[in-house]
Design a protein around this nucleic acid. Structure first.
Length: 451
RNA sequence: GGAGAGGUGCCUGAGCGGUCGAAAGGGCUCGUCUCGAAAACGAGUACUCAGCAAUGGGUCGCAGGUUCGAAUCCUGUCCUCUCCGCCA
């Protein structure tokens, strides 16, 4: 949620968001909002006036001579009831429009309609390191300069997609996932399970060293948590809603699509102290997504599924844009650390205004691993600055050094997901159909070759 | 699942129809004193909305109701705690 004052003073900027496709033209009627806003102000003013009179009346009543007051009191009450109804009605409409206004992109965010306008600003591969700048580009990026072969497989040969080798090695079972739960579900088995657990473990140890607090969090949450981090209303169709007659107190619950709502809602309605910032937490949870709208897309393998595990990194910082930018780069450095430690080629793109995705993001980097089998990049991490968009909704504030209360800033970044197993299978397979274990995971997995 | 108790400011805790945004104590901040500290003493110490300000509105878990007037009474709701039961 934006500061209403900001919207009043920058109505043109909000309209611009609609024009460039960042905000829904259907939901975000800025002129209507401005009209409702002034109506609301007017009613609020009238209500204050009535309340003032009520208070005066009550003051007079203290003397005990109540006779002449009854009628006025009743009249004022009726009037205030009426105004309250009006206010509630206006506020609902006013709020609904605001709920659909996304965060304002930072100036360095590329302007653009969609994926083609994203800017690739970094690409890395294990042998040569970072690609020279002239090989980077927009959109599809440096794909043409990336190797068609497994980065760590030892020879040049046609790379098998993960579902093929995963099945052959009996470490991924898609049929069983379908049998038990339906399409877009899977089992990861044996060394496959160890590999991905090892990845989570590797990152967790790094994050703990870096001062992140590990959290085990609810996976079923109330609407407010999802609204707070802006999955509702923006991505509401992605969310599974629990249906049960046994919900306690009729408390509607939802399955999270990321631990971010659970992590941030933990701090809802609280006041932090500046010296305790930044707050850095991490949680590994299953994530649930309906994937409506992507039917027919990525149907093979474990890339796009209804349930997967994710280790999420969430940060609360003070309200300072430059510090947020610094933290954003720091989180990216953790992403890069993991991929470089695993020797997986990747690139980083600065998402354009039309491709920022969820409402809270003011700036977002996607980190994508190169998949030689398909000759394309696959998103594995998403690092975003969400400024005070989420903390306004969740009422997370802090006291600064001058004792002022301010809304804190938040940042979100994916630490690791099951998709990294896809990347490992692509890049560590050998010509004879075996899978090497990345050096950094060998202790955990207990061997250096699978198959 | 059954029975009971309670939710007030940073904390403890009073208030139970007007004098209450709220006693008292603690904590914290500033000041006096001191070479410095402790102690003592003095002052200050919730949030929020409108407004340049003066000022005014709202908030005693939350939502309604009664009343000229509600932290105080009534209803609902959420949460916490205790005991019993059931189960890890």
């Amino acid at each position: 949620m934006l500061d209403p004052n900001y919207i009043r003073q920058n109505a043109e900027k909000i309209k611009e968001l609609v024009n460039i496709g960042r905000a829904s033209s259907e939901k975000v009627d800025v002129d209507l909002w401005l009209k409702l806003d002034s109506q609301r102000k007017e009613v609020l003013l009238q209500l204050d006036q009535i309340n003032r009179e009520k208070n005066k009346l009550a003051e007079r009543g203290k003397s005990g001579d109540v006779e002449g007051l009854r009628e006025d009191g009743k009249r004022l009450k009726e009037e205030s009831n009426k105004l309250n109804e009006q206010l509630a009605d206006i506020t609902t409409q006013w709020q609904t429009i605001m709920d659909w206004i996304p965060n304002i992109p930072f100036t360095e965010v590329p302007i653009g309609k969609g994926a083609d306008d994203n800017i690739e600003f970094k690409a890395w591969e294990p042998v040569n390191g970072y690609l020279p700048i002239e090989k980077l580009s927009a959109a599809e990026g440096s794909g043409e300069h990336m190797s068609k072969f497994a980065a760590n497989g030892g020879a040049d040969f046609a790379v098998k997609p993960h579902w093929e080798l995963g099945k052959a090695l009996d470490i991924i079972d898609l049929e069983a996932g379908a049998k038990v739960s339906g399409s877009r579900f899977y089992y990861i088995k044996k060394e496959g399970a160890l590999l991905i657990m090892g990845v989570f473990n590797l990152l967790m140890r790094k994050l703990i060293q870096d001062g992140f607090d590990p959290m085990i969090v609810p996976v079923l949450v109330k609407e407010r948590a999802l609204y707070g981090s802006s999955q509702i209303p923006g991505d509401a169709d992605q969310i599974y809603k629990i249906e049960s007659k046994y919900l306690e107190d009729n408390n509607q619950l939802y399955l999270i699509g990321s631990s971010e709502p659970s992590n941030f809602a933990y701090f809802a309605d609280s006041v932090l102290i500046e010296k305790d910032l930044p707050v850095k937490v991490m949680a590994q949870t299953p994530c649930f997504r309906s994937e409506v709208g992507s039917w027919g897309k990525d149907v093979r393998g474990i890339k796009r599924t209804h349930q997967f595990d994710k280790l999420e990194m969430n940060v609360i910082t003070e309200a300072n844009i430059d510090k947020a930018r610094e933290m954003h780069e720091y989180l990216l450095s953790l992403n890069e650390w993991l991929l470089q430690t695993l020797k997986l080629p990747y690139h980083v793109i600065n998402m354009c205004t039309g491709d920022l995705g969820y409402f809270a993001a003011a700036k977002k980097y996607d980190v994508e691993v190169w998949l030689p089998s398909a000759g394309e990049y696959m998103e594995v991490m998403s690092d975003s600055i969400t400024t005070d968009y989420q903390t306004r909704r969740l009422n997370i504030r802090y006291k600064d050094s001058e004792n002022n209360l301010k809304y804190a800033y938040t940042l979100n970044d994916t630490g690791a997901t099951h998709r990294l197993l896809i990347a490992i299978i692509e890049h560590y397979q050998t010509q004879d159909g075996k899978l090497l274990v990345p050096e950094a995971l060998q202790d955990f997995v207990g061997k250096s070759v699978i198959g």
